[in-house]
Amino acid sequence: MISRRTFFKLLAGSAVGLLSLAGYAGGVEPLLRLNTTHYTLTPRAWRRGQKLRIVALADFHACEPWMPASRIAEICDYANTLGGDIILLLGDYMSGMKVVTGTVPPKDWAASLSRLKAPLGVHAVCGNHDWWQDAEAQLQRLPETVAHRALRDVGIEVYSNRAARIGPEDAPFWIAGLEDQWAYLTGRHRMTGLDNLPQTMAQITDDAPVILLAHEPDIFPSVPDRVALTLSGHTHGGQVNLFGWTPVVPSRYGSRYVYGLKEEGGRHLVVSGGLGCSIAPIRFGSPPEIVVIDLA
């Protein structure tokens, strides 16, 4: 039988361990770590020999003290050193966390994002928290949010069910960006999306390859073979990843698209682990990351 003294030693040790884990999950991983994750892909729908380096950033969730404008600026300065031909932003610039000491006004986080530079520009979609944190857009069912306007005001291209042909004439491609799939809150745990994939794809007028930006990865089963690569964020890699077990994933597919490179039927999806936190300022086993993708 375990002695009382041994029991309390074990209890104390467990308490110290739990406090250490909590300190890491709340103070080290979300604030002090930043991974750069590289993928090299040759999608079936991408032209052979057509090289493109993508730098993708997702889910900043700007707020004090976890993701202030100064930290966003530092992340952007680092992203500029990664040699991207194009920089893609995958939504959720606004924070939905309650455990904060202050908000970051859209003009301030947008000013930090304006530091991003790439030869083929910076292109963005918005995410569910950009919609949910805009009370006026929710109440009046507006077609865009303050986040859309803040991005445009600093010269960042924002896509809302829109496609644009970019790149040199000898190697063009399309950026297609969906509006958010969870935009309007319509009841407890019920959302209505503003995404329109058929309308977006209908704007593509030639056979140049297509890169699709969609904040939530749930659209992927509906993405046509015509799309070379789909890029998403939203899930934060589960935000808490316990040796492969992700207990909370905001997706109707559970952990199917929680993180990383997915290939289905020759189609490719990359889901970024994102940079900030949602709901609670905790990350464990899912550090903040910038994604670099080389297409060739």
Rank of each mutant, 00 (worst) to 15 (best):
V270A: 06
G102V: 13
L82G: 08
R165T: 09
I86W: 03
H215P: 08
V248H: 00
P288N: 06
G17N: 04
T192E: 15
G102R: 15
W174C: 12
S222F: 15
R256M: 05
G266F: 15
N80G: 14
L231C: 13
M97L: 15
T186S: 08
V16Y: 02
I293M: 10
Q140A: 12
S286I: 11
S20E: 00
K107E: 07
V122D: 02
V125N: 01
C63S: 12
R5T: 14
P221T: 04
S286Y: 05
Q203W: 10
T145W: 11
Y159D: 00
L19Y: 09
G91Y: 01
H189I: 05
K51Q: 15
E157Q: 08
D225R: 15
R152K: 15
S70Q: 10
I204R: 11
V154W: 13
P287G: 11
A15H: 02
R267C: 05
K51N: 13
G177F: 08
L11N: 09
Y39S: 03
N128Y: 07
L197R: 10
A137W: 09
Q133Y: 05
G121T: 10
N80W: 10
E144A: 10
G254Y: 04
S95H: 12
D195R: 13
T103P: 03
T81R: 04
T235S: 02
H148P: 04
G167H: 06
A56S: 10
L89P: 02
C76H: 05
G260D: 01
I86Y: 02
G238Y: 00
D92A: 04
G102K: 12
D294Y: 04
E136I: 14
K98E: 10
R190P: 05
R188Q: 10
G23P: 10
H38S: 06
V223G: 01
T186R: 09
A15N: 02
